[in-house]
Design a protein around this nucleic acid. Structure first.
Lengths: 137, 137
DNA sequence: CCTTGACCTAGCGTGCGGTCTAGGTTCTAG
DNA sequence: CTAGAACCTAGACCGCACGCTAGGTCAAGG
């Protein structure tokens, strides 16, 4: 338990100290982070755990505003679990759909790669872009 | 053939006319887009085809700067196909890795969803976040 | 003590990828 | 011929998610 300074938490979570202060200003924590007599933040492991989840949400492109909403739901205590679930499900849908989009684009890109490889192998590959307007695609 | 005005091209590609002019300023086209006597842009189908590919690249998070580089390679004519291929392969790697990251985050998020569902089903699910600092995770 | 390094607040700056506005000009259907 | 839609340029502006600086304060080792 206790007594983690901001630098340590930054290191543990892979976030910058700037980001941690920014998160706090934005109200993304589950509680007020207590301070030392000198005003320095004192985190607990539970804060780190929460930050790690936030990191996952951020990495999956959840906007700060939505993380904030989720944090507010958690902070306002039990009883709103359906809302939290709805929010998470919504985000899950978004992530799946993003993965699908990326996969679709990936196929196009990979197709281009194959075309170039074939071209470079000496085959008469078509489908390459010419310098100016000689539409060959 | 052709003679497509900017609005038509916007419609065909799903981009805004603002975006098309922005792309032009950024040098993402394969050629100078010709103008009518009155100064209005006249596109061809080949431009649209290129834009569609650019759209795919953008959708897969290729930065404008890299699209620009690719466009420059294509513009500077044959002979640099290996460079183009390298660029595309690089991006392909990025996209795959992004998909993997998203998939990993998705698992965490889906895990949370399952936990909440179980909790709401009346089970004594643990792993939920409590309001203040009662670390239960 | 004193230095050193981590920390504090407030607030401005940055990069990306566009969007929007103002003030006009051009094209086209009737 | 004329109205109205579509187009033009230059440049200001936006939201996001921080990053960075200035100007200090605090804590721990020697």
């Amino acid at each position: 338990m206790g007594g983690l300074p901001i630098g340590k938490v930054a290191e543990m979570t892979g976030m910058s100290v700037h980001a941690l202060r920014f998160f706090e200003r934005e109200g993304l924590f589950l509680r007020e982070i207590p301070r030392s007599s000198g005003g320095q933040r004192i985190y607990e492991q539970a804060d780190v755990d929460w930050l790690v989840l936030c990191g996952r949400l951020r990495d999956s492109d959840m906007p700060i505003a939505m993380i904030k909403k989720f944090a507010e739901l958690v902070r306002s205590g039990p009883g709103n679990e359906p809302d939290r679930l709805a929010l998470l499900r919504d985000h899950e849908r978004n992530v799946r759909s993003r993965i699908d989009d990326l996969t679709a684009s990936l196929e196009v890109i990979h197709g281009k790669v194959l075309t170039y490889e074939q071209h470079l192998r000496g085959g008469t590959a078509v489908g390459l872009w010419s310098p100016v307007p000689a539409p060959a695609h």
